[in-house]
Design a protein around this nucleic acid. Structure first.
Lengths: 203, 203, 203, 203
DNA sequence: CATGAATGAGTATTCATTCAT
DNA sequence: AATGAATGAATACTCATTCAT
């Protein structure tokens, strides 16, 4: 599904140009945020003229959507690649969480963008993006279900998945606080340690 | 410390006008965010003219700072009021966490503002605000130290304090996800339950 | 009635600035038409900045309305001043028509603006302007009624008033055709001559 | 004479494409006027691409010219078809006027376009169009000459022809005023009645 | 102290036109 | 001949900030 209209017919070209746009805009949004970035700057950073930019989107908000969507897409894909729902070992659980934390570490800046700009999106489009977030939490939840079948209640699984989810994000957007005290490895170790106690306590 | 300059001499008046401003601006920021709110709207919502507004601040960002500062002030004060560092019982710990969660529930919208707009602040001013956040995490940390003296390491205390801190915030800014599944009481119960296992595991 | 909103409170100032605007815009509209005139040009021709312009109007169309309204106002006032509904002599009728024709001669360019741009106005505002035109035709109709009481039917009076009305306008906006062949005096003489025959024929 | 250059050699094709263009553009101009219609819309309404459009014209104004020219062409042709300069009866005169009025009734919208957009044309092209209008007035004048030979002066004939001409147009572009009061038949009857008195008075 | 009129740099967006394919 | 992607000048409108009263 692609809710952003373009007046260009060649779909491959649309894809290509939009990727340029996303790349250019992402850099700018990281630097100065969505509101302080102008459409001209986006066009320039994307390597084409302002007129061309508007052949591929209708409003500046469309760019924000494309950027947000692309971030989720990346995160989802990479997360999905790390998760094997046929492997129900505790080690696989730990590895999956570690993968997720590492992913969040690599994508710190992108995730920060999301946190700060999503609320600027139009209602409908926002809903679409939030759904993606729900999907990701669901993935974490499913890993829990797979690796700890049986005794954890549905709601506890949901809650724990949410906790994991934001602990990963926290590593990125609270780096000014955490990254003075912990290396990523240390952070992961301790969080997973606590998590395991919680899970054990839940069973 | 009050880093915002005003051309008005009468300090009491400055305080009064700024409180009007904070109240007016907060409402607007909740509705439409900082960037979409104009200084004229702020002046109007505050009950005075645009000229008067600029007698008490120098830039629009100053308003954002005042609002953010005020939010932290409120949260800090209320949190501090609930914490008794002489009481080292586990029950007091649980009650303190509950108080904090309830506080976050009441101040959902204010906390959301902070999350989304702080990065718009100037570096120096941002630092000042982030320090406030550190202070609050420290308060939570001290409660942990007090109620679970001995075996938890300094870093584990820090990490747990951070976890509590963001779980409180999460209740507010992820309400679209959590508040469909949990009532506040349920959320608090389960989070505290998990927390206790983590603490026990840490000792 | 003044349907154009301004953010300026001082009503006298609003009036003054709008008169500046009307004067500046009228010159530009005569030269190049509404669509080819930019708001910046209007501001400059009015003697203030673009920002100030927009303190007194909301959209460019508002300027068009103000200009159109002002033209009708002038025409109406001057026409009204020439008509004496207590004088029922045929000479007064002829003089009234002459006055109207002379007025149209003086205001050729303004009338041309009206003809070409009114359709650009929004529906509601257009209706307001068209009503003014109806009022003017009514004035002519009343002169006919006064000076030729009795036998002319209501509809004939209306039709004749319309004919007079557009014959006056025609002198202005078909000057490229008529003013090579006729002086204003000649034109008036002949039109009034034909008019009198029509009226006589109608009685 | 065809003052609009095209880069296409095949004259028949040029004609065909331009007719498509005129048809498409006319619809759009009626709806929203020349200035509010984009070249892309014209291309689309004409059934070909924007690139193709520009193979047959050089500027957007060219389209306006083609449309205006086509309207006059149609009106001229149809008027000419109704006039028989060998028939000098008064009835033929009346019939000719009636034909013209009916024509104006059918072509109300087209005539309205002309009235409002001609001034947007470049000087030279405008002159060309105005000449067409002169030709049409001449045709009416010749009917008068033919049916009322003798005593009417040249200038009176011209003036009367102009009066008829604009009374016809008036029916269209003042329909909001006239068509509430008159049916076309009534309007024609009365106007011809008045006209006959004027002519009689002139002889 | 308070007011609000004035300012103009800044911004998103449009659209006529070109030109390589 | 036909296409449609690319261009960028142009434009309406906004809004933070100033300053005379």
């Amino acid at each position: 599904m692609d809710p952003i209209l373009s007046s260009i017919k060649d779909q491959e070209l649309v894809e290509k140009r939009r990727n340029q746009m996303i790349k250019g805009a992402m850099t700018l949004f990281k630097e100065k945020g969505f509101h302080r970035t102008t459409t001209r700057e986006i066009a320039k950073a994307s390597g084409f003229s302002i007129g061309t930019l508007y052949e591929y989107i209708r409003t500046k908000e469309d760019v924000l959507f494309l950027v947000c969507d692309s971030i989720y897409q990346q995160v989802s894909e990479r997360l999905e690649a790390q998760i094997d729902l046929n492997n129900s070992s505790v080690d696989h659980f730990k590895n999956a969480i570690r993968s997720y934390f590492r992913l969040m570490d690599e994508m710190q800046e992108e995730v920060l963008i999301m946190y700060q700009e999503v609320k600027s999106l139009e209602k409908e489009i926002k809903e679409y993006v939030l759904q993606k977030e729900r999907d990701m939490v669901s993935m974490l939840e499913r890993v829990i279900s797979t690796c700890f079948p049986g005794s954890i209640s549905q709601r506890d699984r949901e809650l724990l998945a949410n906790n994991i989810f934001i602990q990963g994000q926290m590593w990125g957007f609270r780096r000014w606080m955490l990254q003075k005290q912990f290396t990523l490895e240390e952070y992961m170790d301790r969080q997973i340690h606590f998590l395991m106690s919680s899970i054990t306590a839940s069973e």
